[in-house]
Design a protein around this nucleic acid. Structure first.
Lengths: 112, 112
DNA sequence: CATATATTTAACTAAACACTTAATTAAGGA
DNA sequence: TCCTTAATTAAGTGTTTAGTTAAATATATG
C-alpha cells in the first residue's frame, strides 16, 4: 500500500460527514465504540472502519478496557490543519499588502 | 450525482497533495492553467480535473481571457475549515476547563 | 464451562477517484 | 483559411473508499 502524507490522511479523514460527527461527539468527552455507534444507523463494522481512518490520521486514540475500547480525541492533527490553512490565507492576503505598498509608493512619488 | 455538503467538498479537495500544491502556487498570485500545469508532471486533463474539484469546493475561481483561464484563489472555504477546526478544538479544551473548575470547587470545599 | 456482550477481521460489492489517451472547442496570428 | 496554442470533454482503466454480512476474538458473568 502506498503510504500517504500526514496532511492528506488528516484532510481525507475529515472529508467524511460520519467521521466528522464522530469527532463532534468525542470533542465533548471520551466514549466507547458502542456509545459512538448509537448515534449512527450504519453497521458496527462500518463504524470500526471509520475509527481506523481517524486513528491513522492521529485524530483519535483507542485504549482497551476489558471488552470496551475507549476513544479519545487528539487535537494535534487539527493544529496541522490550522497551520496549513493559516499559512495559505496569510500568503494570499500579502497580495493586498503588496498592492497597498505599491499604491503608497506611487502616492509618495506623485507628491514629489 | 449525490450532492455532498460543502465542508466535505472542501476537505476532500484539500486531501490531495497535487491540489494542495496548486493552491500553494495560487496563494502567491493568480495564474493561468498552463502556468500552474508547468509545476506538475501529470497530463493537462488531469490538471483540469483537479481544478474542477477545487472550483466545486469554492477554493478557486476561473475567469476566461481569450483562450486562457485565469485561476484565482478564494479564501472563504478556508474560513469554513478554520471555523470547524477551532470549534472542535475549543470544545475539547473545555473538558480541561471543566476539570479545572471541578478541582477549584474541591479545594474550596476542603478549605471550609 | 457456556453464554452474552463489545468489537474487529475477512470477504465482497458498488461507487468514487486519479489518472491516461484521443477528440473537441475556442481563440489568435500567418 | 489554415495552423498553433490553451484548455476542456469523452471514454476507458486501475485503485481506493464506504458500505454490507458472516465469522472471529476477547472479556465478563451465570
Amino acid at each position: 500500500m502506498i503510504t500517504k502524507d500526514t496532511l492528506s490522511l488528516i484532510f481525507a479523514a475529515l472529508a467524511d460527514p460520519t467521521r466528522r460527527n464522530i469527532l463532534t461527539r468525542l470533542s465533548q468527552r471520551a466514549a466507547t465504540v458502542g456509545e459512538v455507534a448509537e448515534l449512527f444507523e450504519i453497521s458496527a463494522p462500518a463504524i470500526s472502519q471509520h475509527l481506523k481512518v481517524l486513528e491513522r490520521a492521529g485524530l483519535i486514540e483507542r485504549t482497551t478496557n476489558a471488552q470496551w475500547r475507549t476513544l479519545t480525541m487528539r487535537t494535534e492533527p487539527l493544529d496541522e490543519v490550522s497551520a496549513w490553512v493559516e499559512k495559505h490565507r496569510r500568503e494570499w492576503n500579502q497580495r493586498f499588502d503588496a498592492l497597498e505598498e505599491h499604491l503608497k509608493t506611487m502616492i509618495t512619488k506623485e507628491e514629489q
